[in-house]
Computed example of a mutant assay.
Amino acid sequence: MTIIRMAFNRNPFLGAYSLCTDKIALLPSIFRFNEREVEAALGVPVVRTDVDRSPLIGVLMAGNSNGLICSELFEIGSGAGSLKPDVTVVPIPGKFNAFGNIFLVNDYGAVANPDLPEEILKLVGQKLRVPVVRGTIAGIKNVGAVGVATNRGVLVHPDVTSDEAKLIEKTLNVPVEVGTACAGVKFVGLCMAANSKGAIVGMTTTGPELGRVESALGFI
């Protein structure tokens, strides 16, 4: 497993712009970066694309090895034509659109913003083939912004409560640890993208923070 530090045009908030599963990584088409280095770290193909001309892939999309979800209001850019045959993007109806922020997902489960209606939870559960529960992290409803989940572990906001951590562990079936990234940022979901094979984190992430990322995501 490999972790690399990088930035998009000096912007360290990689998680806002990237979505990674154990099958594929979606990264924005407008930024320059070393694709081979990223593919080597994550162990999956990199596809350059956008969401309705926005580079905020990590904010607007969520998913796991079974599929990706995005609001039906958006169109996925031309790079999506390079998706693997078994990777599908499922349009989700309704007013909610920042799925990367409102879902924390791995291949075993999903934790969702508690404001989401039951019909959305059921649809997402069917498409991603996982149980979905409502929850918060540190009292924050946008769980995807304050957590990073893989099939090995979860890194979350340092102020998560014990009850919240227990719910996450039960739902995602992996251990939970707390930490920060990008030199003290608690919204770790906006700072990195990761899967079971590796991670890319914001360039400003410190050495001690990298150690916590490695531990939480099961790389050591």
Rank of each mutant, 00 (worst) to 15 (best):
R152M: 10
V213W: 13
V174N: 06
G139N: 12
Q126Y: 06
T180R: 05
R5K: 15
R53C: 09
V89W: 06
V148K: 02
L56G: 02
N151W: 05
V174G: 01
E209V: 02
T204F: 14
G207T: 09
E177T: 00
A16V: 04
L73C: 04
A183I: 00
G198T: 02
L56D: 06
N9G: 08
C191G: 10
F103I: 00
V59A: 15
S29T: 01
G58A: 13
S82T: 01
G207A: 14
D50W: 07
C20E: 07
R53H: 14
L14W: 08
I57A: 12
T21I: 13
A41D: 05
K186I: 06
S162P: 00
A149R: 07
V51Q: 04
V47H: 04
G94Y: 08
Y17K: 07
D22T: 03
C70F: 08
L19Q: 02
V105M: 05
L217C: 01
A165E: 12
E169S: 14
L190E: 13
L56R: 09
V201R: 12
V154G: 09
V59F: 08
G218K: 02
E118D: 13
P28W: 14
T205A: 03
A25T: 06
I30P: 02
T204V: 10
V133A: 12
L217N: 02
Y108V: 00
R48S: 04
L60K: 05
C70Y: 04
D22H: 05
D107K: 07
